[in-house]
Computed example of a mutant assay.
Amino acid sequence: MKLNRHSRMATVAAIGALSLTLAACGSDNAVEDDAAGSTPDAEQASTLSGQLEGAGASSQESAMQAWIAGFQSQNPDVSVAYDPVGSGGGRTQFLEGGTQFAGSDAALKDDELAQAADRCVSGEVAELPLYISPIAVIFSLDGIDSLNMSPATVAGIFDQKITNWNAPEIAAENPDVTLPDLAITPVNRSDESGTTENFTEYLAATAPEAWPHEASGDWPVAGGQSAQGTSGVVQTVTDGQGTIGYADASKAGSLGTVAIKVGDEYVPYSPEAAAAVVDASPRAEGRPEASLVVELDRTTTEPGAYPLVLVSYSLACTEYESSEDATLVKAFYSYIASEEGQQAAAEAAGSAPISDELRTEALAVIEAIA
């Protein structure tokens, strides 16, 4: 049976209430579930101690640094570490039991969900969309800060069919820009990447004739340049001239960026434009109750929407073998989902804070961790 969004919320909330009644682990430090998404008070926080290990999406790195700093300031006896090894590596470490939590820019695949059923004792995996950010198409061209491009133009560049910066396709969309007669050097991720999966999913959905490849976390086109992680791609684009890549917008820095065509307008990236797409998109069906995976509408023509968006999931188990692990993960994720935590990420990484409705859903899942 498939549940709609509201019935899923009710079910998860009921599970959370039952778990808190029957299981003492974590209940002493539970976050008060209110509209503000408040975090534990100082007296409760001071009782926490232990170590949390996480790994995963490099897109979350700036936000994670802010989350760890904010959480540890309230809980000085807790040590939290996060290795931005990439989504694929983070999922592997988490599913093999090497970390208590993980970050992934892509939802778990069917075989990974089966593996999670074993890893999470008698519980299930939680996939919480707590980091929402645009993916920026970044480039390095002297004297040019921004360009307009349709999905077909972006796809043609990264499929290496459009090979020069003054190509007719680019010139037609940027009549007021003097484009150089310079070869284009596309830069992609060398590692399995959720950012890559989101980017290729966008190209496949919006420009299928220009992008004849399936969505994948592994880059499907040979040639060009490649680099490890978000920071590697950004550095490679920065060090070149005529280079173009894709990265979490928090890392775009002073590089040039592309406004992508949505309907009849060109929309630059922004947290607000990314959040508009997420809030308008439905939940994926047929997943575990604690999985709040979003089925993004990449082909939207909604004015002001930016569909090249990355939703990065915070992965956890709803049940751990260790009560200490359950308590610490529960407290840390409650902070991440709170208004305070989301604002910290917005300030550090330029991400879009989640809506109050999504926060309510996420906190219901977090409360069920035991």
Rank of each mutant, 00 (worst) to 15 (best):
N4K: 07
H6A: 13
H6D: 14
A17E: 15
C25H: 14
S27A: 14
D33W: 10
D34T: 12
D34I: 05
A36F: 15
E43S: 14
A45E: 01
A57R: 01
S59P: 00
Q74D: 13
N75M: 05
S87N: 00
G88K: 10
G97K: 05
A107Q: 09
S122F: 03
E127D: 12
T153W: 01
V154W: 00
I157D: 02
I162F: 08
T163L: 09
P180V: 02
L182R: 10
L182H: 07
R189N: 14
S190Q: 06
G194E: 07
G194W: 01
P212H: 08
S216W: 08
G223E: 08
S226V: 15
S231P: 02
G245N: 04
D248H: 07
A249N: 07
Y269R: 13
E272R: 11
A280F: 05
G286A: 10
G286M: 08
R287I: 11
A290N: 06
V293D: 09
E295N: 12
D297Q: 14
C317W: 00
E321W: 12
V329A: 05
F332W: 04
Y333G: 04
S334A: 12
Q342S: 02
A348D: 04
A349L: 11
A352Y: 01
P353A: 00
D356N: 09
A370Y: 03
